[in-house]
Amino acid sequence: MDETFTAFEGARRVAQGTRAALTKALRAKGFGPGAALLVFSDLTGRETDLDLSAPPAPPADAPPRGRGRPKLGVRAKEVTLLPRHWEWLASQRGGASATLRRLVEEAIRQPNPAARRDAAYAFCTAIAGDLPGYEEAMRALYAGEGFAGAVAHWPDDVRAHALWLAGAPEGSTPQP
């Protein structure tokens, strides 16, 4: 599962998708280097940079690839575990790598209210920190009630994205 990002031009949501898909969509809409965009991680709510310059041509004499399965996007990393952990992993269906992947995927699917709240806070601080009612909205976000009402007067796209990040039932993020 690839991380997704959302781009805003002012208070208007422009596009959303994986880093590669978002870059392609923004280039197609005519945005280039230096565009007045704010791009946010949908996982953390933090602002991030996006390279909108033309993709460089691959070098003709590219060095050989390292370990891993690059066609699948897999890169070799190192994991340090105790011997009993390795024994348990080895006894699982599919071996250590398959079991670790399953465990990570299960953990990713579990909602984490604290992480969602923190993502909404990071997003709101960056894009809505100067909007009326910001402080009250952040208090409501962390109190766990009244957030939707506190942001009701915010611009539509900012409000919808903040609610979606926070996991509020009223929040939805329609595709731009």
Rank of each mutant, 00 (worst) to 15 (best):
A60L: 15
P132V: 12
S172D: 13
M138N: 04
T6V: 13
G73Y: 10
T173F: 10
A15E: 09
R65P: 07
L163N: 04
A57T: 14
D130N: 10
G149W: 00
A137G: 00
G144A: 05
L82G: 07
R65I: 10
F8T: 09
P83E: 01
M138D: 04
A7T: 11
R84S: 06
K71Q: 13
A137N: 01
H153V: 11
N112I: 08
L100R: 01
R93V: 01
L26S: 05
S53M: 10
A166S: 12
V79E: 03
G133S: 07
A90R: 12
L141A: 01
P70N: 06
T48N: 10
P70L: 12
P58L: 15
L163M: 05
A62W: 08
A126D: 04
W164F: 08
A143T: 03
P55D: 14
G30S: 01
T4A: 08
G149S: 00
R101A: 13
H153A: 14
V74E: 10
Q175E: 14
A60P: 13
V14D: 03
A60G: 15
K77R: 09
H153R: 14
L72T: 03
R109V: 02
G94Y: 02
D51R: 05
C124Q: 14
T125L: 13
P111R: 13
A36G: 06
G66M: 00
E135Q: 14
F5S: 03
P111D: 08
G144R: 06
H85D: 15
G17M: 05
M138T: 10
F40V: 05
P33W: 03
A114E: 15
